[in-house]
Nucleic acid binder design. Structure first.
Lengths: 125, 125
DNA sequence: ATGAGAATGATAACGCATTCTCATCTATGA
DNA sequence: TCATAGATGAGAATGCGTTATCATTCTCAT
């Protein structure tokens, strides 16, 4: 038999990402996808996240001090905002216009990451 | 008896930071401090890092995808460069002049972090 | 409907960074 | 010099995120 590409569980996991519209941790995926498929197990979440990364539908987002989150791949270059209170990660539009940091002699830059911190709309009132 | 503030081990650990002049992981501290005090154990490294953080001499630096590093506290606002190959973290001078990212409605910004990636002088040739 | 292959879910196991345990060593005041 | 509280070092133990195991369930071509 061929590899199954659309089980109920995998669909529930994809829907969780689409509905959240922000990068999710495996636990957040579990919580979100269980609203569609309550019996979902965390091993299946990890397996399907890996599968979706392999397919190119998801990509990993590493952030300081917390475990890896995953977001739908293929978006334009962007950065992230993390809420200090609820720790949820959000996508930000755009990037720094033209930033030329002074590098030590002999260093070569290949990329950058940028994070904003603060309070999200739910936690800021 | 009072708390001992200057054991051979703690001095070796402080010296490791001063000599490296960049943020260090506990393992890097162990390696660097063992050049001064070969019998140094890793538990002592962890204990003294914590002690130096409590004293305000060190501060934690969290970075994406790697364990926490520590740097000498009290420096001016700055950011970091991580080498893609050797994974060493370096300090960069200065910051982004004036960056006003577009935040979603209701969000409030309290801080930011910035990371450059590339190759350090030892790995770039 | 059947059966082979694939996916699932519960749980055990893993890797890793970090912390704890405890016997030993060290530094300082008496 | 001695006594004592603190610090150390080796290794065990912990916590957490992730992966492996394996019996069961599901899917789909026949």
């Amino acid at each position: 038999m061929e590899k199954q590409i659309n089980t109920r569980q995998k669909t529930a996991i994809r829907d969780a990402f689409i509905e959240a519209d922000r990068p999710l941790s495996p636990d957040e995926v579990l919580e979100g996808a269980q609203r569609h498929h309550p019996a979902l197990g965390k091993a299946t979440v990890y397996r399907n996240i890996q599968s979706l990364v392999d397919e190119g539908w998801l990509q990993a987002v590493e952030i300081p001090g917390h475990s890896t989150r995953y977001e739908v791949a293929g978006k334009e270059h962007h950065h992230h905002f993390q809420c200090n209170r609820c720790k949820k990660l959000y996508e930000l539009e755009g990037c720094i216009p033209s930033f030329k940091p002074k590098l030590p002699r002999g260093f070569r830059k290949t990329g950058h990451e940028f994070f904003l911190y603060g309070l999200c709309s739910q936690c800021n009132h």
